[in-house]
């Protein structure tokens, strides 16, 4: 009998998931493909928050700004350097990661509320800074065009399916790498400094450096997600990265259970589903314009509070816990 170790099982799991998504992409309509691409992008962004908060114990409200850094870097490398979109996405991740490293060294010295406040200040101020360099295109921003899908994929292969493919493939590969990373020594070290920094330090872990590395990794992934986001909306501008985006990602991470990467798809589905649910509620009961615009935010916030109160480690953990009790 063949014996599979965990990492190989995991690889097959991801390949299987990819295969299902591939088949699915042919069977669903354009709207679902587009939404699916958003789910993959959100899953990646939520994974970056979970890596940072769940595994290294740092809290960031500035991930919208880090996504913006990646998105602008990607747009500039396509528009000005005429690079291939795939390379542009890599550059988006690298530049955001570098930016995150600088920020991470400052952040490593800050604890809880200080870090939250500082990254909040970053998220509020970075978009206004982006307005001041003409190369970044001001309020209108820059276009982000990856071109049409390759001709060999056939004529009825739509742009939305192409988006879905790129987004899902990127998210799958990155999350697979992440899951592998955190089951190695690095992951254990991250968890050690989250759970007990003093004990971690005594075991010879350089806390400052590890935290900065975690921040940089997380920022790189966020930058990549930012690149995917602007690919989906075909343009990058300050208004695409409001503070509420950071809040949304944090909500997605908490709702999935911030201490495990397993549920990122669930969190991402929730983020995409909520506006849709809000819309169907509105179409049924109607309401003023203010009601319509404010309802999704209300639902996300309420869900967040309920999660913190009733399932602080995420719904997955709740089930797991119940199962555990039965034994």
């Amino acid at each position: 009998m063949l014996k599979f170790d965990t990492s190989r099982k995991r690889l097959f799991g991801f390949l299987f998931l990819g295969w299902i998504l591939l088949i699915l992409s042919d069977r669903i309509g354009e709207l679902r493909q587009y939404q699916g691409a958003f789910v993959a992008m959100y899953a990646l962004a939520i994974a970056s928050i979970i890596l940072l908060t769940g595994y290294s114990g740092q809290l960031s409200l500035g991930h919208s700004a880090l996504m913006a850094v990646g998105a602008y870097a990607g747009a500039l490398s396509i528009n000005n350097l005429k690079l291939h979109p795939a390379i542009a996405l890599v550059i988006a991740a690298l530049i955001a990661g570098l930016f995150g490293l600088l920020l991470g060294y400052a952040a490593a010295r800050l604890s809880g509320p200080y870090l939250a406040g500082t990254t909040l200040a970053l998220a509020v101020s970075l978009p206004t800074i982006a307005n001041q360099f003409p190369i970044l295109g001001g309020e209108q921003g820059l276009i982000f065009d990856i071109g049409v899908p390759p001709a060999r994929l056939g004529e009825d292969f739509s742009l939305y399916q192409w988006f879905f493919w790129i987004s899902s493939l990127t998210a799958l590969i990155m999350i697979w790498l992440l899951v592998n990373l955190i089951s190695t020594r690095y992951g254990r070290e991250f968890r050690a400094l989250r759970d007990n920094p003093i004990a971690a330090q005594l075991s010879g872990i350089n806390i400052g450096r590890k935290k900065a590395v975690a921040f940089s990794l997380s920022a790189g992934i966020a930058g990549l997600a930012g690149g995917l986001l602007v690919m989906l909306i075909s343009g990058v501008s300050p208004s695409a990265f409001p503070l509420s985006l950071s809040f949304l990602l944090l909500a997605g991470a908490v709702v999935t259970g911030v201490y495990s990467l397993k549920g990122v798809i669930l969190g991402a589905l929730v983020l995409v589903a909520i506006p849709e649910i809000a819309e169907s509620v509105v179409s049924r009961i109607g309401g003023s314009e203010g009601f319509v615009t404010s309802l999704p935010g209300f639902m996300v916030s309420a869900l967040l509070i309920l999660t913190v109160l009733f399932a602080p480690s995420g719904p997955g953990h709740l089930l797991h816990h119940k199962k555990h009790l039965k034994h």
Binding site: T53, P113, F247, V258, F291, S294, L304, I305, V308
Partner: peptide
């Protein structure tokens, strides 16, 4: 560790949504 920050942020979201309502 993160509950207070998350709770006050969520409250901010709720209050601003209620203003919108």
């Amino acid at each position: 560790m993160i509950a207070p920050v998350v709770a006050t942020l969520a409250l901010l979201g709720i209050i601003q949504a209620i203003i919108g309502f």
